[in-house]
C-alpha cells in the first residue's frame, strides 16, 4: 500500500446527512452538494482502494507472467534438446551409410 495515502479514520457521511434545505418560497432552489469534508473523505477512500487494487494487479501480472514464462522456457529447452538429438541421429545415419558402403566396396 502507498504510505503517502492517508487512511480513513471514520466512515464517510451518508448522502442524507447533507440533506438539501427546503425550497425557497420564491421558487429559487439552491444547488447543494456534499460538503468539502465528505468529498475529501470519499476521495481518500477511493485513492486507498485504487492503490490496493493497482498493487494487487501488479502482483497478479508478475505471478502469471512468471508461471507461463517458466512453461515457455522449459518448452524451448525441450526444442533445443530435440534438435540436438535430430543432429545426432543424422550423424549416426551418415556413419552407418559410410560403413555400409565400405562393407560393399570391400577392404
Amino acid at each position: 500500500m502507498n504510505p503517502t495515502i492517508p487512511t480513513l479514520t471514520k466512515a464517510p457521511p451518508t448522502a442524507d446527512q447533507g440533506a438539501a434545505p427546503a425550497a425557497a418560497e420564491d421558487g429559487y432552489e439552491a444547488v447543494t452538494g456534499l460538503d468539502k469534508e465528505t468529498v475529501a473523505l470519499k476521495r481518500t477512500y477511493e485513492a486507498e482502494v485504487e492503490a490496493k487494487v493497482a498493487s494487487d494487479y501488479s502482483h497478479i501480472v508478475w505471478a502469471y507472467g512468471i508461471l507461463w514464462s517458466l512453461f515457455c522456457g522449459f518448452a524451448i529447452v525441450l526444442l533445443v534438446r530435440g534438435s540436438r538429438q535430430q543432429r545426432d541421429l543424422q550423424a549416426l545415419r551418415r556413419e552407418l551409410e559410410r560403413r555400409g558402403e565400405q562393407a560393399v566396396d570391400g577392404p
Binding site: K52, V53, S55, D56, Y57, H59, I60, A63, Y64, L67
Partner: peptide, 14 residues
C-alpha cells in the same frame, strides 16, 4: 485478501 487472491487459481494447480 482482495484482488490478489486471484493468484490462487494458478498457484494451487502448480
Amino acid at each position: 485478501m482482495g484482488t490478489a487472491q486471484k493468484i490462487f487459481y494458478f498457484h494451487l494447480p502448480m
